[in-house]
Nucleic acid binder design. Structure first.
Lengths: 236, 236
DNA sequence: TTAAAATTGGGTGTTTTTCCCCTAAGTATA
DNA sequence: TATACTTAGGGGAAAAACACCCAATTTTAA
């Protein structure tokens, strides 16, 4: 896809390095939905020693297709988290199961602890915020290849914070039916109308509402709406 | 593509061209809050012919400080729209007034018509979505320097759509007091409590509410909340 | 400049919806 | 056989929504 560098010059340099220093050139793939950014990051990575960008992908789906060709297997994948079609978390999970030797470094503007945790659980070997120094990216690439993982102080801090918080939060789980209900709550329907839509008695709806008020520690329907939006149960 | 030749070769090439063709090297500044991205874009821009990145800024404030030194004046600024402290729109307005010779190209993931319009009104000579091809960036830079402006088809389309829509929308204007009120609406306060906070009679609040229901074409408080969030009257 | 129109703040009352407390049967499921 | 989940209901208080009303100011336009 999208194409590889001015093939001639790249190959030329790679060969040279291989011969003189006998250094292995590590193969990198970038998965990022914004083409200009992936090209820019690619330009950066190619400027590092011993790293070579194989190709770019716009999302996880595209990556899985590419990987079916054996010559397309990289050493490290730089993976954006927010992508359409198949996002970073799903994709990383898929890689963990199907290509466990490929290391994934997450690259994101997202500082949301939940997402970082999910990404690391999915198998990412590192999580870089997009406002790090470029040197950090090079260090991370080297570390991941040599030691198997790399984490910045920022992310480590966040992780510790999260662990401490989890004692209190114990992450609230919503049932299927509750999620269905809360989606309707975020519309202009009355509870009576919601009951009709869900084929339930208005009194049952009363029950769901009261349970959620209690569970989510909100006082009224507005609270539910705010909760739903903050926790991305609905998107606007 | 995707790759910049190692710095040495790049500098070598640039010098060569300067000497042989007497080509002017255009000076570029990148304003973008995510350091890694600005460094990546910088790497890309430096790989183009006749362009050289002078320095990077994290936000508009930093830029205004830098510009006070005459040698820091660039030909073109690549400006992110969403930044903390001083965003792309404010910064572009400032540049238009104080440094009218500097051309601004907006660089954003934001496809929101309103924001694009604001940016162009503020004086941007081009608006690139971050998922364009890198060649487009190079073309845009050249066009802006030679012709004074550049717009992709995407943005042109959006502009035409917006013009058509404006006939219908005629953008609803909210008064100061209404905005104050609607912000309270997006909390768990009752109307009575909102009245207290705004030092008004609950009945006046009734008036505001009913007026907004009508003006914004919503049926109840939930509708107001959804409207407020969609139109960024409040941020979560 | 003066009258009409819009804006802002306030009032009384009714109906509908929301909220809150309580109970409890039927169904998975571990 | 507990435990949890889903469903459903009664009764009552509070809030929200709706319908009209009035009267100062400020803006707009004739």
């Amino acid at each position: 896809m999208i194409n590889t560098p001015s093939d001639a010059s790249l190959k030329g340099r790679a060969t040279k390095i291989d011969k003189n220093k006998k250094m292995k050139t590590n193969k990198i793939v970038i998965v990022e939905d914004h083409l200009l950014l992936s090209q820019a990051i690619s330009s950066l990575v190619n400027s590092f020693n011993d790293f070579e960008v194989l190709y770019l992908c716009k999302n996880g789906k595209e990556l899985t297709t590419k990987l079916k060709t054996p010559s397309n297997l990289p050493d490290v994948i730089l993976m954006d988290v927010n992508m359409p079609i198949m996002n970073g978390i799903e994709t990383t999970k898929y890689l963990k199961e199907n290509y466990p030797n490929i290391k994934v470094i997450a690259l994101s503007v997202e500082e949301d602890e939940d997402i970082i945790i999910k990404m690391l659980k999915a198998g990412a070997k590192g999580y870089l915020l997009k406002d790090v120094e470029k040197d950090i990216l090079e260090i991370a690439l080297n570390e991941v290849i040599n030691n198997g993982y790399y984490h910045t102080k920022d992310v480590s801090k966040l992780l510790i914070n999260t662990l401490n918080k989890d004692y209190k939060n114990a992450k609230i789980k919503l049932k299927e039916r509750e999620i269905e209900f809360i989606k309707h709550v975020c519309t202009e329907l009355t509870y009576k109308e919601i009951a009709e839509k869900m084929f339930l008695s208005p009194k049952t709806i009363d029950g769901y509402r009261d349970a959620l008020f209690c569970k989510l520690e909100v006082k009224n329907r507005i609270g539910l709406v705010i909760y739903a939006i903050k926790n991305k149960i609905i998107t606007l």
